[in-house]
Amino acid sequence: MDRGGCIYIMTNHLRTTFYIGVTSDLQARIQEHQVGKNPKSFTNRYKLHHCIYYEMHPSIEEAIAREKEIKKWRRGKKVDLINTLNPKWDDLSAEIQRW
């Protein structure tokens, strides 16, 4: 049985920098970013504490493939993707933590 996966996009307060990640436990991973579990990580150095986009996938392999696809895109296409789910670019962290 495959374990599901998620891709997600984190950004900073000014919404200028993106981090695209993949995980099998979105709630835990978002929390790790927000508390700075890995002090030398990209997300911690650039204060990327706001989750503005996520997608659920039936398997972690599908999520990894989607992450690789999105990482190749130019910023404009990533912005369009974010706008489909979250046009105001609200931080979705609280919504994710309520699951």
Results as ranks from 00 to 15, higher is better:
1 M>V: 08
2 D>R: 03
3 R>G: 04
3 R>W: 06
3 R>P: 05
4 G>C: 08
4 G>Y: 02
5 G>D: 00
6 C>D: 00
7 I>V: 11
8 Y>F: 10
9 I>N: 02
9 I>T: 07
11 T>F: 05
12 N>L: 04
12 N>S: 06
13 H>E: 15
13 H>C: 11
14 L>W: 14
15 R>Q: 13
16 T>C: 10
16 T>F: 08
16 T>P: 07
17 T>M: 14
17 T>K: 15
20 I>E: 00
20 I>R: 00
20 I>C: 06
21 G>W: 05
21 G>F: 09
22 V>T: 11
22 V>I: 11
26 L>Y: 03
28 A>N: 09
28 A>E: 10
29 R>V: 05
29 R>C: 07
30 I>L: 08
30 I>Y: 01
30 I>N: 00
30 I>A: 01
33 H>Y: 09
33 H>T: 05
34 Q>F: 07
35 V>P: 02
35 V>T: 12
35 V>S: 07
36 G>P: 04
36 G>S: 05
37 K>W: 08
37 K>S: 13
39 P>Y: 06
40 K>H: 15
41 S>L: 05
41 S>T: 06
41 S>M: 08
41 S>D: 09
42 F>R: 01
42 F>C: 00
42 F>M: 03
43 T>M: 03
43 T>I: 04
43 T>A: 03
44 N>K: 06
44 N>M: 10
44 N>H: 10
45 R>Q: 13
47 K>V: 03
47 K>D: 01
48 L>F: 04
48 L>M: 04
49 H>W: 04
49 H>R: 05
50 H>F: 08
50 H>M: 11
52 I>Q: 01
53 Y>H: 07
53 Y>T: 01
54 Y>Q: 00
54 Y>F: 12
54 Y>I: 00
56 M>A: 09
57 H>C: 07
58 P>W: 05
58 P>N: 07
58 P>Q: 06
59 S>M: 02
59 S>E: 01
59 S>A: 04
61 E>H: 03
62 E>S: 05
63 A>T: 02
63 A>M: 02
65 A>C: 03
65 A>Q: 05
65 A>L: 07
65 A>F: 04
65 A>M: 04
66 R>E: 10
66 R>L: 08
66 R>N: 05
67 E>P: 00
68 K>F: 08
68 K>C: 10
68 K>L: 12
69 E>R: 06
70 I>H: 01
71 K>L: 14
72 K>S: 13
72 K>N: 12
72 K>V: 09
72 K>Q: 15
74 R>I: 13
74 R>T: 12
74 R>V: 14
76 G>D: 15
76 G>H: 13
76 G>S: 15
77 K>Y: 10
77 K>E: 12
80 D>H: 15
80 D>K: 15
81 L>T: 08
82 I>H: 04
82 I>M: 06
83 N>L: 14
83 N>T: 12
84 T>W: 12
85 L>E: 13
85 L>S: 14
85 L>Y: 13
86 N>L: 10
87 P>A: 11
87 P>M: 11
88 K>V: 13
89 W>K: 10
89 W>L: 12
89 W>Q: 10
90 D>E: 15
90 D>N: 15
91 D>Y: 07
91 D>I: 07
91 D>V: 07
91 D>R: 02
92 L>Y: 06
93 S>G: 13
93 S>N: 09
94 A>H: 09
94 A>K: 11
95 E>T: 11
96 I>V: 12
97 Q>G: 02
98 R>W: 09
98 R>S: 14
98 R>N: 12
98 R>Q: 15
99 W>N: 13
